[in-house]
Amino acid sequence: MRLVLPLVLLAAVGCAGCTARPAASGAPAGSSAQQRPAGTTTRVPVTTVAPRSPAQSGVTVVPPLSPATPPAPGDPAVFATAQAVGVEWLRQWCAVDWREPMNANLDRAARFQTAAAARADRRDGDDENTYRSAREQQLISACDRITATESPEAPHSAEVAYLIISARRVDSASGTAFEDRPVQSVRRVVRQPDGRWLVDEQVEAG
């Protein structure tokens, strides 16, 4: 996914295809940006903050080598609260494996979204070029430490919540982790007529 840095409801603050972002020009020597595999891209409508290599963070993490498994069909607990569905949406969105079909993570995440949100995320998904690059480099991404908290700056009701959904994302190539970084998105989450909560489109300040 392409990485964008929107002004969301927090003033300071995909992939969809989820291949890792290329190093920025002028990155300082020894930065994690220079440790990323060459030619990789990130196509993500989620804010990322202060990328760090696993060595810099002092944490050794190896992403799972299999895609995230969604809850069993009909599991009501996932859809019972805005926070629960927000966490599951980000977990599925984050889990990318080069052995899967293109944008398989978006297909899984769509189950926890409104149709409009799923369409919006797919616009930022992988294309044939970024997917080919991910397969060539055997890229895998996964998220842990996922949280969903209500934004204190947004209105909430019994039918609509505004959540700050955050996690730590770890990227690896050919089985070796090369970066971990926080990711964050502010999302509207909407209660459906049948009582289920679903993640809606990303919210920007304005």
Rank of each mutant, 00 (worst) to 15 (best):
V85G: 03
G39N: 07
T48E: 12
P73L: 00
S57A: 12
R36N: 06
N105R: 14
W93Q: 11
P73M: 00
S53E: 05
A33R: 03
V96M: 12
A72R: 08
N103M: 14
E88A: 07
P64K: 11
V49G: 02
R91F: 05
S57P: 02
A82D: 14
T41W: 15
V59L: 12
T48N: 09
A84F: 14
V78F: 12
S31F: 01
V61S: 07
L65D: 07
W89N: 07
N103C: 10
A27N: 01
W98S: 02
N105K: 13
S57R: 09
T47M: 14
L90I: 04
G39I: 01
A104R: 14
T42Y: 12
C94K: 12
S32W: 09
Q83C: 04
W89K: 05
R99N: 01
A72V: 09
S57W: 11
V44T: 14
A50W: 13
A55T: 03
T60S: 09
R36G: 00
P51F: 07
G74W: 04
P45I: 15
A77K: 11
V85N: 04
Q92E: 06
V49S: 11
G58C: 05
P28D: 05
V62M: 11
T81D: 13
T81A: 12
P51Q: 10
G30I: 03
Q56P: 00
F79T: 04
V96D: 10
T60C: 06
V49R: 12
T47C: 13
A95P: 00
W93V: 09
G39F: 00
V46W: 13
P71H: 05
A29S: 06
S57G: 06
A80T: 08
P67K: 11
W98H: 12
E88G: 01
Q56Y: 06
R91L: 13
R36E: 06
D75A: 02
Q34G: 12
P54N: 03
P37W: 08
P64C: 07
A95I: 10
W98N: 06
P76Y: 12
R43L: 13
Q35N: 02
V78D: 08
A50Y: 09
W93S: 07
F79H: 02
P54I: 04
Q92P: 02
S32H: 05
Q92M: 09
A33I: 05
R52P: 01
T41R: 15
P54A: 02
P67T: 06
P67F: 10
A38H: 02
Q92K: 12
A50K: 13
E88L: 09
G30H: 00
P71G: 02
P71D: 05
R52F: 03
A82I: 14
P28V: 11
G58R: 07
Q83M: 10
A104N: 13
V46I: 15
G39P: 03
A104I: 08
S32K: 02
A77I: 05
Q92L: 11
V46T: 11
L65Y: 09
P37L: 13
V49N: 03
V49C: 10
Q35V: 01
Q56E: 05
A82V: 14
P101S: 12
Q92S: 06
V61L: 11
A50S: 11
V44P: 07
